[in-house]
Design a binder for these strands. Structure first.
Length: 268
DNA sequence: CCCGGAACCTGAAGGC
DNA sequence: TGCCTTCAGGTTCCGG
């Protein structure tokens, strides 16, 4: 499922396909994915616009258009964007036609993904928290975020208004690498634990980007290839397997209705 | 403000 | 083999 590393990979690999191209039309096969404006207005406002760039903010993909508007896509659980010509991928919910004859297909079996066209991107993303891979995400910043919180640290890591882009898989991986139990109350972490967690978050995300994301569920890159990050997961989605450090069977518990895999020995 | 839980969705996996 | 149930989880919304 697309989290920060997957969305970052899609951004990088989609950019050469769309940069400088003009959108000649959009077909919508399921209108529920469109958050705003109405389908007809969306299609008329986006038609003819040149795509000038793509950025990522948290798990959002942000296309900048020549007229100053923003096409914002969230892939949620199962969304994927494929680039090609004359394809008909399964679960296609929308197709963007470009002026070089190529198409961008938005495929999403679960129909959770959302598309919107806005003039002010802050109305969508203004409440997002800090970007964990930027230099201003320091151990001190993390300490301040943790201090106010009485929730389990795992739940806190998933809050996009605090840190933007971490999802269930990478939260589990970061906590394991920092040897912190996911149920630990956020404001109870020691300075040393916060330093370890900060370092682990950066490393886990950077490494996953190098591996082009994790192809769990429906994640595909724009060319149709999978990522390889999931092959290197140490605890995420590995319930019952042996802990890579101590050999103890990994456990899985539910925290805020999210499956959380961890080692009961290494993460006390 | 803070926290937890339901709803949105449907393919895939597991049980019998 | 096939029907049925359960599970998966990012975000938004709602209630305590």
């Amino acid at each position: 499922m697309p989290e920060l590393p997957e969305v970052e990979t899609i951004k990088q690999e989609l950019l050469p396909h769309v940069s400088g191209k003009r959108i000649t039309g959009v077909e919508l096969f399921w209108e529920g994915m469109l958050r705003q404006p109405s389908p007809k207005e969306f299609q008329s406002r986006i038609r003819g616009q040149k795509i000038t760039g793509i950025t990522r903010r948290g798990k959002y993909l942000v296309f900048s258009l020549q007229n100053g508007e923003w096409l914002i896509i969230h892939l949620k659980m199962s969304g994927a964007l494929l680039a090609g010509r004359g394809l008909s991928p399964r679960f296609t919910r929308a197709v963007f036609h470009l002026d070089d004859g190529s198409d961008i297909y938005f495929c999403d079996p679960r129909k959770f993904g959302k598309i919107q066209l806005v003039k002010d991107k802050d109305t969508v993303m203004g409440k997002l928290g800090i970007e964990p891979l930027e230099d201003d995400f320091t151990p001190e910043v993390l300490q301040k975020l943790l201090k106010k919180r009485k929730t389990p640290v795992k739940a806190m890591l998933l809050e996009q208004g605090l840190i933007a882009g971490i999802g269930n898989m990478y939260a589990d991986e970061a906590l394991f690498n920092a040897a912190i139990n996911p149920l630990r109350v956020a404001n109870s972490l020691s300075t040393d634990e916060i330093k370890r967690l900060h370092k682990s978050i950066k490393e886990v995300l950077q490494t996953a980007i190098k591996r082009k994301g994790a192809s769990i569920s429906n994640y595909y890159r724009p060319g149709g290839e999978k990522g390889s990050a999931h092959n290197h997961f140490r605890v995420a989605h590995r319930k019952g397997e042996e802990c890579p450090v101590c050999g103890t069977p990994l456990e899985r518990i539910s925290i805020r209705q999210r499956g959380s895999c961890f080692c009961p020995v290494c993460q006390q």
